[in-house]
């Protein structure tokens, strides 16, 4: 059980540090962190010390999802308990959905598994950020992100509002209750999608609603029939007049990382639109 020795040492050092800095964090500083979820992968890559990451899911290395280079020592997993056990992680991060069985097995085997809730709204996102802080400690980039978000949300909402509608893949739009809807509202847009949650929207409805801003969602690097609506020539005048915005794919995969930039860009977009009118 030699693996326990460094952990114990670390613990003592942490206690000492804590005593000196009077840290409020209840969190331990883990140094063998594994993730079972693509979003949590991204969070670790962005915010945690690379040396502390033990394992990430293979999706993070897949071409279509890779956003940051993966440190060489990191093992890729396919969210199977038997892959993770030999790595002896001191913290396994799991999402709310997916890889549940692996998480349960690991927990039963005595591994420290923490479930991070998913975020589909601003409120849930703030809870998620708190959960990250609770388990990972006060990482500077995390704190910065939280501060930036609070700052943006504290700004008074603009008086001159513009209208917008989201046209996502497969003619899906985002209505009230969704994070994307809240971001539009906060940025000073009225979301014209009248529905709750996810709903279908036809091109006809998009044209008939006459939004000031047409919001696409996700990448168009690769072809898919799902993006056909967004490529329809009828939308060309929106593209030509610069009245479009594309929500980053990251926002749907891992809003914690993308929310601040997206909200800021939407606010800027609204100002530009209002000025142009």
């Amino acid at each position: 059980m030699s693996a326990h020795a460094p952990r114990r040492n670390f613990f003592w050092r942490q206690l000492l540090l804590g005593a000196v800095l009077i840290l409020t964090a209840k969190a331990q500083a883990y140094e063998r962190i594994a993730s079972l979820n693509l979003c949590l992968d991204q969070v670790l890559l962005n915010w945690a010390e690379p040396a502390d990451i033990a394992s990430l899911t293979w999706l993070s290395a897949a071409e279509q999802y890779r956003s940051l280079p993966i440190p060489e020592h990191v093992q890729l997993n396919r969210a199977r308990a038997e892959e993770l056990l030999p790595l002896k992680p001191d913290l396994v991060l799991a999402g709310q959905y997916g890889a549940q069985r692996a998480a349960e097995r690991l927990q039963a085997l005595g591994v420290n598994v923490v479930t991070i809730p998913d975020a589909y709204s601003l409120e849930q996102l703030q809870q998620q950020l708190d959960a990250f802080e609770a388990v990972l400690g006060p990482l500077p980039p995390l704190q910065k992100q939280k501060r930036a978000l609070t700052q943006l949300l504290d700004q008074p909402t603009a008086k001159q509002r513009a209208s917008a509608v989201i046209l996502s893949a497969n003619n899906i739009t985002y209505g009230s209750g969704m994070l994307e809807h809240q971001l539009l509202q906060r940025a000073g847009f009225d979301n014209l999608a009248s529905s709750q949650g996810l709903a279908r929207i036809s091109l006809e409805e998009v044209i008939a609603l006459q939004p000031d801003l047409l919001v696409f969602y996700g990448s168009e690097q690769h072809f898919a029939l799902a993006y056909l609506a967004a490529r329809h020539p009828v939308l060309q005048r929106y593209i030509d007049s610069g009245r479009t915005y594309t929500l980053p794919k990251q926002l749907s995969l891992c809003p914690a990382l993308a929310v601040v930039d997206t909200l800021q860009q939407l606010m800027d977009k609204r100002e530009a639109l209002v000025k142009a009118q």
């Binding site: 279509q64 893949a169 690097q221 072809f223 898919a224 029939l225």
Partner: peptide, 20 residues
């Protein structure tokens, strides 16, 4: 295919569509 909608696209192709 490097697409997030792979399985659904199969249906699109094999059942046809005139949408959009």
């Amino acid at each position: 295919a490097p697409s997030m909608f792979a399985m659904q696209e199969v249906v699109f192709w094999l059942m046809g569509s005139l949408a959009n």
